[in-house]
Design a protein around this nucleic acid. Structure first.
Lengths: 356, 356
DNA sequence: TTTCAAAATGTTCACGTGTACCTTTGACCC
DNA sequence: GGGTCAAAGGTACACGTGAACATTTTGAAA
């Protein structure tokens, strides 16, 4: 014997076969419920398998049969509630069809993203769901081209795949419009800016749309890198300006904490001194002050859609996305509606000078 | 030809070998940097592999060589910041050693937990990190016994494995003690109660310890299921009592939102009417009101330790755990220190009647 | 040149599973 | 009784990789 079985301590189908004096093929058939085996034999073999503690080997199955039963989800950051909520739904949906979720965190770093994609490709996953990084490497996109892939939340032009997004333009437009309706005449937008990704551009554009339509409104737009630091610094800068805005729209959940921190440090109060409309809807928005008004995204529906599409499982569209095709490709864009949740962080503008 | 290669579109080492007129073994050796191949040949073969777009097959490697390079993490809930923060660090640590993280969400359901463990076992993972469910099935524990396994955050007695926990007793004791020192004479504890899990019992006991040592203090203890609903309902019940407590200690991050909701609905204010000490330290604790005083856990250190242990990688103990052995087994318990972060949600008790 | 070890490469096989194809058995029909 | 056919099971092999063992080539000492 050249070497002992390296990867096993439990029995294989051959062991079961030997123990019962049948061929390993019969065991395989019995366990896979093939019609080629008598019910009685099936029962006998299954009982033996169970009592011997047989556990099938996913690697062998995969080697023989095709792709594995894993799906990769590559996302920038799990600590962000927005993404952890998505991850949860994806994991649930996949588990329901017996698939497994490999979670890869890119930290918005193209190098790390590439490493994760490489790693995933080696596992021959059933599919990959990705929220792409701003400066994705071309090699990353090339690798993804060979695998069933869906882009979620963000879209990168190098990747040819279906895209599942929310109505980003509408989201910021609704937020800005509401503040305009409340009488605010100087509104700021803090978002992440990136020409290569859909998200940043769309959200900024939605904000513009509302503001352009109201020439009496002054707008300040601050785009920056998609990290939490940007929120704080930008907000400090905005709020210490003597001509500071009276309302802020956040273009990303990441900036909320930083902005709130800045508001407190500058001695201001929400909504008395400044109105605020957030993005996404983590639990604590409900209990912060009188509640934070925000644009809520249909996370559950988007994530389920993504998971169902890569997992080829049935799908219950609780919410109907708008389906459009992407210019020049055969890919589809599924856009899910958003809605503005009104709470206590925004209110009618009152001029501080007039009040005194 | 009986059937075409079912699981491949890219080239294998045999294809590369054929293209360059060498044996597939030479290719394998070159790609694995074996000393048995000339540097020059290595270079030639590697370049060919790269240009042909070769991607190794993890399943074949695993089948031949032993275990896979995946590590499973079974946790009750990723949306909970506490766990998503842990998942993040585990994923990072594993990725640094080229391993992959399979995320399985048990939702505190023993059946689901068992299914996940079964699924993971089929993948022959390098190890499993688990935060066990209260009523774990015996079969789950049996399966885990055959795999390198570490319990994280919670310990279930059926599972014989090393355990990585925080000083749960100290945590609640510190919190209660602080409130006593601030002059509070009626303190409530809202936690999750379960005899089979270490966490619930330990945290309750820590609270007891502080309270017992101060006979003048009245304590109300409310244990319930580890879900967010418990927090709200219990808090409502506590706060609508005419003899309501003047301070609350939370025994789990899950209960914070519900408790804050209840406080607002009953028209009370933190810290004027009621002091509050939380558990864990999500970002928003810093910006809620004047900040939420809380017991912060060394999440990063605990998660890194768990990941390093199952991944057999080097380990940098930024924080030194206390190591004790577990009665009757050869397993170790690694206990990490906690610390009380003082913010604005607790303050000196003032009797409302005397003030008037 | 011969010899012989060391270096470089090749041949074979096993890992666990499932599929294509072959063999045996026995029931049924004319 | 020979023939047909279906049921039930077996044999052989492939999937991609790497370890063990075999073979060839190299190069230097004798």
């Amino acid at each position: 014997m050249p070497y002992a079985r390296p990867n096993r301590n439990g029995p294989t189908i051959k062991d079961i076969a030997a123990a019962l004096g049948v061929s390993h093929v019969t065991v395989s058939r019995a366990l896979n419920d093939s019609p080629l085996v008598t019910e009685e034999t099936k029962k006998r073999l299954r009982e033996a398998a169970a009592s011997m503690g047989y556990i099938p080997d996913a690697a062998a199955k995969q080697l023989r049969g095709g792709r594995s039963n894993i799906v990769g989800f590559i996302l920038p950051d799990v600590e962000n509630h927005f993404f952890s909520a998505i991850a949860r739904v994806i994991a649930e949906t996949l588990a329901a069809s017996g698939m497994q979720l490999v979670l890869s965190i890119s930290e918005d770093d193209p190098d790390l993203e590439l490493r994760h994609v490489r790693s995933l490709c080696e596992a021959r996953p059933k599919g990959i769901i990705i929220t792409p990084v701003v400066n994705m490497h071309r090699e990353t996109a090339d690798l993804l081209a060979n695998i069933p892939c869906k882009q979620l939340v963000r879209r990168h032009p190098l990747v040819e795949s279906d895209v599942i997004v929310s109505e980003d333009k509408t989201a910021t437009r609704l937020a800005a419009q509401r503040l305009i309706d409340l009488g605010h005449r100087h509104i700021a937008y803090i978002g992440n800016g990136s020409e290569t990704l859909s998200t940043g551009a769309d959200r900024a554009e939605g904000f513009y749309q509302a503001v352009w339509a109201a020439p009496e409104v002054k707008a300040t737009i601050k785009l920056g890198p998609p990290g939490p630091g940007h929120g704080y610094e930008t907000a400090i800068e905005l709020l210490t300006d003597p001509k500071r805005p009276t309302a802020i729209v956040l273009g990303s959940a990441l900036f909320t904490i930083g902005t709130l921190q800045a508001i407190r440090e500058t001695g201001l109060e929400v909504p008395r001194d400044i109105s605020l409309i957030g993005y996404d809807d983590p639990d604590w928005f409900k209990v912060w002050g009188a509640g934070i008004t925000t644009v809520a995204l249909p996370i559950r529906e988007m994530a389920m859609m993504a998971a169902s599409l890569v997992g080829e499982s049935a799908l219950e569209p609780a919410l109907e996305p708008a389906i459009t095709s992407i210019d020049g490709t055969s890919c589809k864009r599924l856009t899910f509606p958003v809605n503005l949740v009104q709470r206590g962080s925004d209110r009618q503008f009152r001029d501080r000078n007039q009040e005194v």
